[in-house]
Design a protein around this nucleic acid. Structure first.
Lengths: 201, 201
DNA sequence: CTTGCATTTTACCGGTCGGTCAACTAGTGT
DNA sequence: ACACTAGTTGACCGACCGGTAAAATGCAAG
């Protein structure tokens, strides 16, 4: 049952930076195949459709994050609110390094795809939703711990977590419109001022 | 110098809902022409390229907003912070009504286009940037007045305005991923908790 | 050595993409 | 009556789109 070739992963590897930098619709299967050194017929042996490829790409990006910056940021050894600082920092440095290499701020692949395809493909949207949902849980757990340890005043951790995730995506969007990751640096820390009070409070 | 026909505006009118709901790349000029009852050659009489069309579409959307909800929300007669409430409400009801008619939450056309094309077309990006810049100014003026009248504690109104705009775009993005405008209703009001302190404070 | 399956190759499909072109129409000013 | 021009028409361009089919290959188990 081991994988016989690396064709599938080469396709995904070729697709990742392209979908990230030039959107879903603007990258053709032909181009991906050429870049991966794969024939088109071979592509369709591994992926029933273009949609299946983008879902695989989303999963790989999510894994990269989960095993990289996110794992570092949401380290239980860190004080809760410092984890959020860490995550913002990580997002900033990542976008900055991409811009240095690529000349452009590419933003968040999940946000990009959400706005591009979520009105047209409910399956892709569901995949993105699941990833945002996991991200929200990370924020919420952190906030729960911060409240429990008395670092911040009690609040609606579920909604505040969503608000923080939204803010992060929004700052990345605005930074992309300026092609300038420094906006993340300037506006990022304000994420901790966001508060949704408890319904009964 | 008056306009001889309404062809140009019919093209824009046909393009607006399509770019809004299905992105830029996924809507072809042929489809727009058919819907507007215009020949393709006639299209290129009015628009040198597809890019010029999308810029005209962006301008019309911006005018719609500026003369509609935005003018109402940023009414100088309203207390400053209530204007922000009003704007959030307006965004919520707009998205909700779109979903009722269209079955989908389409989100903000400016945010949508920013994430889709701003890495590929600096001219379109500049147009979007100008619109965000104007929106930021509205927020900032409001915050300046709120500070001046003592309704809120002094803060960095420029950066807080940017943060608020980012938050609004982020909440719309997240709501679109859930295809649910109610998220705007639940998270919107937290926009007023955002604060970027003055550098020297 | 052979069967069988996973993988790869190559050629091909109908349709659409953004954009061009030259001919034609209709209205205006002189 | 004339010329000029804005607007319109419909045919056309090469390139690319996502996807298909069948034949060829390589490899491993029997």
């Amino acid at each position: 049952m081991t994988i016989a070739t690396d064709t599938r992963s080469r396709i995904i590897a070729a697709a990742k930076p392209r979908f990230h930098s030039r959107s879903y619709a603007n990258v053709g299967i032909q181009e991906i195949c050429e870049s991966a050194g794969v024939q088109k017929g071979s592509f369709y042996h591994f992926f029933p459709s273009k949609r299946d490829l983008v879902i695989a790409v989303i999963e790989e990006f999510a894994d990269d994050w989960a095993n990289g910056f996110v794992a570092e940021a949401f380290d239980p050894a860190l004080p809760p609110m410092e984890r959020i600082d860490y995550l913002i920092d990580a997002a900033y440095f990542w976008q900055k390094s991409i811009k240095q290499v690529h000349g452009r701020m590419l933003g968040c692949i999940f946000g990009n795809l959400t706005l591009e395809v979520s009105t047209q493909d409910d399956i892709v949207r569901a995949k993105l939703l699941a990833i945002f949902s996991r991200a929200k849980s990370r924020f919420q757990d952190t906030l729960d711990q911060a409240v429990a340890s008395g670092v911040i005043a009690p609040l609606d951790t579920s909604r505040t977590a969503e608000a923080m995730l939204a803010y992060l995506e929004g700052v990345i969007l605005l930074a992309k419109s300026q092609n300038d990751p420094e906006l993340l640096y300037r506006l990022g820390p304000a994420i901790k001022t966001l508060r949704v009070e408890k319904a009964g409070g």
